[in-house]
Computed example of a mutant assay.
Amino acid sequence: MGRELQKKKRRSGRQPVRTSNKSKKVLNPRGNNTIAKNWNKDETLSQNYRRLGLLARLKAPTGGVEKRLGVAGAVTARTSVNDPFAITTIENAIVSEVRVERDAEGKIVRILGNSRPNPLNDPLNDLDEDSDMEGADDKAAEEWGGIEEDPEDTDRREKEWLDAMVSKYGEDTAAMAKDRKLNPMQQTAADIAKRIRKLTKA
């Protein structure tokens, strides 16, 4: 039924209603001749009012405020006072001199004298681990061999587990696999049968 109606609608001469995204009315201020004379139709209402020194709303604007470009004394996001990772400007940069050794081509080979360990004032430099500490960690990792289980103890516990299952269910491995109390790790029937065969061979 629905398909036929859709076909009928498609065949009809009724054109679909399309709305344009452009607003229907162009802002045209009325009521004040001074505002009407100085009105710029390319700007929004709040931009026009700000240019004329008026307020579009008495309350705080909702949804944020447009950033004004080129305002003297404006602090950008990168050079914020509270941002410790911001790159400082040339005026605030710390300039220092060092002695360097160059090769025949003029490339710097090494820095002479006492050089600062953090020349770029990188705050993350203190968090880096030293290479000496990494070497100590490697030695500790080599010394620790991990947890070693006694294979005889593992076999003994598995034998006890399988004996309990066989004493309860006999040869029925499907029932063993479904038992949640004796088979908490949810071993499959095939896996249990394989373990029982391995145990009986030994």
Rank of each mutant, 00 (worst) to 15 (best):
L112C: 08
E101K: 11
D163I: 03
E160L: 08
R50M: 06
D163N: 10
V71A: 12
D128L: 12
I94E: 10
D128S: 10
A36H: 06
V17L: 15
L162G: 01
D172G: 09
D150H: 02
T76S: 14
A190G: 15
L127T: 02
K107F: 10
I108W: 07
A104H: 08
R50D: 06
G31L: 01
L45M: 04
V71F: 05
N40C: 01
L120W: 03
P117Y: 00
L5F: 05
P29D: 00
K7C: 08
L199R: 13
L182V: 00
R180C: 01
L124Q: 11
A140T: 06
R116M: 10
N82M: 01
K59S: 13
A177Y: 00
T173D: 04
M185L: 10
N28W: 01
D103C: 03
E160F: 02
R156M: 13
E152V: 14
L54W: 04
D132Y: 06
A72P: 15
D179L: 00
K37N: 08
K7S: 09
K194F: 13
P84S: 02
I147D: 14
G135K: 14
R14G: 03
E43Y: 03
K59G: 11
N21D: 13
K198M: 08
G63F: 01
A177P: 15
G113W: 01
D153K: 15
T188F: 01
L54Y: 07
K24E: 15
I111F: 09
Y169F: 15
R14T: 15
N40V: 02
I90F: 02
V166G: 08
Y49F: 06
S12N: 15
D153N: 12
R195A: 15
R102F: 04
L199Q: 09
E134N: 13
K22Y: 05
R3A: 07
R195K: 14
Q47H: 03
G170W: 00
E97H: 05
T173A: 13
G135I: 07
T19L: 12
K181N: 12
L127E: 04
V26L: 09
E152A: 15
L127R: 06
T76V: 10
G13H: 12
E142L: 09
A190R: 12
V17Y: 12
N32E: 07
N114W: 05
R10W: 13
D179I: 00
S23N: 11
G145V: 10
D138H: 05
N121P: 01
